[in-house]
Design a binder for these strands. Structure first.
Lengths: 245, 245
DNA sequence: GCAAAAGTGTTAATGCTACACCCATGT
DNA sequence: ACATGGGTGTAGCATTAACACTTTTGC
């Protein structure tokens, strides 16, 4: 690879000189329903991990950015767009796919209950799982998943690590960013917001303290409307000031 | 690409069906010297960005993980190993390199003053720059760099964004993780630690408050030794309990 | 003694937790 | 009337910020 002149050239410029790893994006589609953190997974029907469950994903094409690839996968697999989505981390162990060398750039997307159910209905190959990540996960340990009936299932590839890191990231961003609101409809009660926080953190929170902390942030606008059809005093509905006009 | 059977197959399995993007790792080698945040950059001697300054980087090979690739680049470019390094973010805009489609996985590495100077001395193509990122960078705006003499320089590719995000990440991790210690020698004074924090955050901090906050974390061990050669009362030297025995 | 920076003590403000209590609704 | 959860007030605790002050060194 004839280096000429300087001892250390900046780079061996031409990528075609090497065999290239492939690049995929994988998506953790998460929601909170009934106080539980949930995720949409796709069943593998061939080896490796035949019968296991995987995050939906796909190759990054030569003419699209990483973010565009993630959006495309979201459209193709869940028939959905306009969802809050952020890049999570890139996973590049050599043997993470036993067939080929594949680097994956993981994203997580936050779906409110309605969109989550839309996705579940629109894509017949997606299934819903609860996510279990014990509290002090610290250095992003792996997540476990189980069916709503409680049956534990195996995650394919390194997707348990990916999902574990997604939950860890959510936990970290919860107080200083509006991720909590992305999991709720446009109008929601403070109790719903608290349930979202409790599901993500896997702890129970003090009601008055939570309430005041949220209101003090000046990110919530009271609508003057109230929930209906409840047998107790109806809670006021709030809007998040910022995203999702 | 003949999909058979199910409507949505899990993935078009074979990566060789597509033209593949290339993957590189780029490294932000940062340190704090003289109360200033600094970075090591490499001069480009050919288009694109001829004469501009870039983060050292290199292609990810087929038989090495992302972390291994980052370690290799650190060895090759800075002749160094055993340095604290973490993955930062992956950048994948289609036109971020005008020649080829290249996705880069960015890492940042934290060097103490001594290692920083070793790297600068060992690699004749690296140069030192000060990093300027105004405080409320919020959504990780681009960084600017200038020479120690104050001359502003251009960063190649999207490396201003990468460096900006590295600083933002450092700022975020400063309170709840030991990143500050990685920029200091094994034994250091509390004033030095404060200077590191001030340089990263670009704010000035209250001395007694900082002191107590650090000591209360139980991460610092007093050595009983004191700095020498100063014209004022010598400060005690502390060690970080944890990393770097 | 003086200058400079290390290191300590005190007070005030702030934020969070816990708990008690009242309010509004459906049955 | 009562059960249920929404919503508010208050007091206590811990953490942090600000400032004044004392200590130790070199000159």
């Amino acid at each position: 690879m004839g280096a000429k002149g300087k001892v250390e050239t900046y780079e061996d410029d031409d990528p075609r000189a090497y065999e290239q790893p492939s690049v995929t994006v994988d998506l953790a589609l998460v929601s909170v329903r009934g106080g539980r953190l949930q995720v949409l997974l796709i069943r593998r029907d061939r080896p490796p991990y035949d019968g296991g469950w995987a995050l939906p994903g796909g190759f990054v094409r030569i003419d699209e950015s990483l973010d565009q690839a993630a959006q495309r996968v979201l459209r193709d697999k869940a028939r959905m767009s306009g969802v809050f989505m952020e890049q999570l981390y890139s996973f590049g162990a050599v043997d993470r796919d036993p067939r080929w060398r594949v680097i994956t750039v993981a994203y997580y997307a936050l779906l409110d209950e309605q969109r989550f159910e839309q996705a579940l209905a629109a894509a017949d190959d997606l299934a819903l799982f609860e996510v279990i990540v014990p509290w002090p996960g610290e250095e992003g340990g792996p997540a476990k998943v189980r069916t709503p009936e409680g049956k534990g299932e195996e995650l394919a590839f390194d997707h348990a690590e990916v999902l574990g890191m997604a939950v860890k990231r959510l936990r970290g961003k919860l107080d200083y960013s509006p991720v909590g609101f992305e999991l709720l409809p446009k109008e929601f009660t403070l109790r719903q917001l608290q349930e979202v926080h409790e599901a993500i953190l896997n702890v129970s929170l003090n009601k008055p303290a939570f309430r005041r902390k949220m209101l003090d942030k000046r990110l919530l606008q009271p609508t003057g409307k109230f929930e209906t059809g409840v047998t107790y005093r109806p809670a006021e509905l709030y809007r998040f000031i910022g995203r999702k006009g």
